[in-house]
Lab assay of single mutants.
Amino acid sequence: MTEYKLVVVGAGGVGKSALTIQLIQNHFVDEYDPTIEDSYRKQVVIDGETCLLDILDTAGQEEYSAMRDQYMRTGEGFLCVFAINNTKSFEDIHHYREQIKRVKDSEDVPMVLVGNKCDLPSRTVDTKQAQDLARSYGIPFIETSAKTRQGVDDAFYTLVREIRKHKEKMSKDGKKKKKKSKTKCVIM
């Protein structure tokens, strides 16, 4: 069974824990209790493949930012979460993405942009803004509501699919490099 290491990042209060708990335990946590770091595991079937999701729910508070490099190193894919009623959390996505790329030393890291709290009427981040940002990053965008469960499975499952595509691409690139290195030079 394939294991996928997913990391949920975003500013404090955007609903990272609520999304994760909704996926794992099928219930909505409405009281806000700032996370330092929590880890969850769940076995699911995605596109006919049974897999184990190892999900790291991270601290959004700035005082825990020193811990970010460590979990970013171990993560295979990242859910970059903002709240649709919090423009600052949307603007912060850029910083999370840049930090992930720096730590992973790669421009090509599996990510999904997630606009959470889409059940709320007080939207300050337009869907088109988020779609445009995701398009500019070359990553999928999904709106979710941890409260109603809308888009929750889709967000995590899409990230797994992005990781699969990335692994497939990397193995193809690896095979191309191996083929090239088999060419021999004969000096007579």
Rank of each mutant, 00 (worst) to 15 (best):
T2E: 12
T2A: 10
L6A: 01
V8W: 01
V9Y: 04
G12Y: 04
G12T: 06
G12C: 08
V14F: 02
K16H: 01
S17R: 06
T20R: 11
I21Y: 14
Q22L: 02
Q22N: 14
I24F: 10
N26E: 06
H27C: 08
F28W: 07
D30H: 04
E31M: 06
Y32W: 07
D33H: 07
P34C: 11
T35C: 05
T35L: 02
I36H: 10
S39G: 10
R41K: 11
Q43T: 08
V45Q: 04
V45G: 09
E49Q: 10
T50C: 07
D54E: 13
I55Y: 08
I55K: 04
I55F: 11
D57H: 14
D57M: 13
D57C: 13
A59L: 04
Q61A: 11
Q61K: 08
E62G: 12
A66Y: 09
A66K: 06
R68A: 12
D69W: 01
Q70N: 10
Q70A: 04
Q70R: 09
Y71W: 07
T74K: 09
T74L: 07
G75M: 08
G75L: 04
E76N: 08
E76C: 15
F78P: 00
L79Y: 00
V81K: 00
V81C: 09
A83I: 00
A83C: 02
F90Y: 08
F90C: 05
E91M: 02
D92Y: 11
I93R: 00
K101D: 02
V103I: 09
K104N: 06
D105V: 08
D108E: 09
D108R: 04
D108V: 05
P110C: 02
M111L: 05
M111W: 05
V112I: 11
V114A: 02
V114F: 01
N116D: 02
K117Y: 15
P121H: 08
S122Q: 05
S122I: 08
S122L: 07
T124H: 12
T127Y: 13
K128M: 11
Q129F: 03
A130H: 06
D132C: 07
L133I: 10
R135V: 06
S136V: 06
S136R: 10
Y137D: 04
Y137W: 15
F141A: 04
I142T: 11
Q150M: 13
D153H: 14
D153S: 14
D154Q: 13
A155N: 01
F156A: 03
Y157Q: 15
T158C: 06
T158F: 03
L159N: 00
V160S: 01
R161Q: 12
I163E: 05
I163T: 09
K165M: 11
H166T: 05
K167Q: 10
K169V: 13
M170L: 13
S171L: 13
G174A: 14
K177N: 15
S181P: 04
T183S: 15
I187V: 15
